[in-house]
Amino acid sequence: MKPPKFEYYKPATLEEALNLLEEAGDDGKIIAGGQSLVPIMNMRLASPKCLIDINGLEELSYIKNEDNTLKIGTLTRQSDVEQSEMVANVCGLLAEAITQIGHVQTRNRGTIGGSIVHADPSAELPLALLTLNGSVQITSKDEVRTVAAEDFFITYLTTDIMPTEVLTEVTIPLMEEKSGYSFQEIARRHGDFALVAAACHMTVDDEGLITAVRLALGGVEAIPLLIGDAEDILTGEQLSDSLLAQVAESVEMESDPESDLHASSEYRTHLAKVLTKRVLTQAYERARG
């Protein structure tokens, strides 16, 4: 339960970090909060030869609302986002998702960017980012590029990010219309990885007709899964039991969860359907306010 040997660097600037990362090549790994990386190093599931610690790069820690877009620096601690009144006001879904990550003590150190690049299939932040149609800014020595959440996650613990790149910012478009949201998960114990998590963001017009909806699930596939059918089924309609049943049915068709020690594939599918109904119902109620 002790990590293997590694070289340690603590760059003072992002530029220095990118240079170190390029020199280290495949042996290099960025450490931010370390709440996912250090456990897997302690268990020797990962053994990076060179750790580049970006905790000194304070300029990567911020929460801003610019042009109706929420911008969060990669090094921002999860607890800072959790306690941000601004985030609670403009992006309730993110605020609700964050409280379900690990525990207070791990959120105090865990970062926004770290959880997203780690890309655990049942993690809260990747799911929230996908549901909110967010994107990430990725920086290397040569360029800064933006990748939508829909294209960022590739498979288990694997994203579009290259060994010489750093995720530097998370952006989430904000909606002005009447909108509602819901983020719910089921875990064996509070703070454990979710067996299944579901998130929904929805806008509704004055007649109660759904004008836009995004529904996504975590823990049912290798990456967070957007249920595209939900939009087709629900847009222009009032939420009803029969429509909920239709969406739940397409969730069953679209997802194929794996069985493991914690839950069978059948049970995960069952949870996915139950949580789908719950988040759609709550998001609709909140949108109607």
């Binding site: 340690y8 370390g34 709440q35 250090v38 207070v104 003590q105 791990t106 105090n108």
Partner: peptide, 13 residues
């Protein structure tokens, strides 16, 4: 000023 896990930090940090 913040409670954290000391097993998830390296001393050098």
């Amino acid at each position: 000023g913040t409670a954290v896990r000391s097993c998830l930090m390296f001393a050098i940090q």
